[in-house]
Nucleic acid binder design. Structure first.
Lengths: 199, 199
DNA sequence: GACTATAGTGAACTGTGGTTCCGGTTGTCA
DNA sequence: TGACAACCGGAACCACAGTTCACTATAGTC
């Protein structure tokens, strides 16, 4: 009855573990460069394995993408939790984090696509990580509100929509949007009081 | 040499003109409901014509979508030009226009997709109409800036990115974003001075 | 070293949906 | 009304990309 172990318990064979890792790395590179239009064959070729091997580890292309997105959201969640320990003024800490996330997002096309337009199926996989991130962000926002350094009518949901919009803007190759300046403006607008430059 | 007329000069036969109109109407309905994932067959069926007829009028699916998007942008441009004649305070006029556009966008899935992530080819078709819209918006913004009712560091490009983000948010079925509240907040933040509610 | 469960391979398969094309139809004009 | 060009219909075509599977290779184990 030792085979009663659920699928994730059974240790992978050494080569399988190695390949799974390679596939994830290649997929990360390929999808972040070309977005979800990249093909499984590209991922397999780059990883130096056959397509069948990719499918041994991930049942569908969608599942592979979902895993990548989940990992990235976990990174964001970790970053948000670290931010909670940082000493600085809470709104500044939040703003810095937003900028750091944006810098990551800038070179990850598939994340731009997914954050801008996450479909239902991937969403279920990613939700836990995103929830954790939002929880930490909420704490930061509460602190900033209490400190009076952030508009009281801005919520965590607004931050989410902001990032959603930012990703859509980044993904725009056709129009020459300067999302960096836009993000700065957004952050400025979220501040409790406009700066002295207000003519 | 009368056939030297360029393709758009030659008057269409009555039935062709009728069908072209029907196709545009059906496509408008189908694509605004289902987005660009809707199929040509659906458009044809709804229009009561064969697929071949659709392809007689529009060389590719992309061209058909582009024409629909172009028409909508022309509507927006017209709306922006009308706004220039309106009597009220310029920032309020601008804000009202944004809300009106958003209301349109809300029930047009393909427009959400396109504004959020416009690909290069469709862009070339739509650009003139969008440029005209932006020109009018720029005038409104200038007036509002002069009146001091709008943040001086906000530009027409920010309005574009704002709408881009708003569309991305609307297109999100997985997450329960309240884009209406978000738009209100954005408008509030774009105002020259925060309201008296600023605790 | 031999045995076997696990893993890898990639050519072939498949479903989907845009596009074509030709036989039949219809508006237009003399 | 006859002739012809323009137009319509929709079955068939085709390309593409995700997925499968029969066969081979290999890691782990006795």
């Amino acid at each position: 009855m030792t085979e009663m172990l659920s699928s994730e318990e059974r240790p992978l064979r050494a080569d399988a573990r190695r390949n799974r890792q390679r596939i994830l790395e290649s997929a990360g590179a390929v999808f972040s460069e070309s977005g979800s239009e990249a093909q499984i064959d590209d991922v397999a070729r780059r990883a130096g394995v056959g397509v069948g091997t990719v499918y041994r580890h991930f049942p569908t292309k969608e599942a592979l993408v979902a895993e990548l997105v989940r990992q990235k959201f976990e990174l964001f969640a970790a970053r948000a939790n670290e931010a909670l320990e940082l000493p600085g003024e809470p709104f500044t800490v939040l703003a810095d984090m937003l900028r750091a996330n944006a810098a990551d997002l800038e070179r990850d096309v598939v994340m731009q696509e997914m954050v801008a337009g996450l479909d239902d199926h991937i969403w279920t996989v990613v939700q836990p990580a995103q929830d954790e991130m939002l929880r930490a962000i909420q704490v930061l926002i509460d602190r900033a509100h209490r400190a009076g350094t952030m508009r009281p009518d801005a919520t965590a949901s607004d931050i989410g929509m902001l990032m959603c919009g930012l990703c859509a803007t980044m993904a725009q190759t056709a129009r020459d949007f300067d999302w960096r300046r836009h993000l700065d403006l957004m952050i400025e607008m979220l501040r409790g009081r406009p700066g002295p430059a207000q003519a």
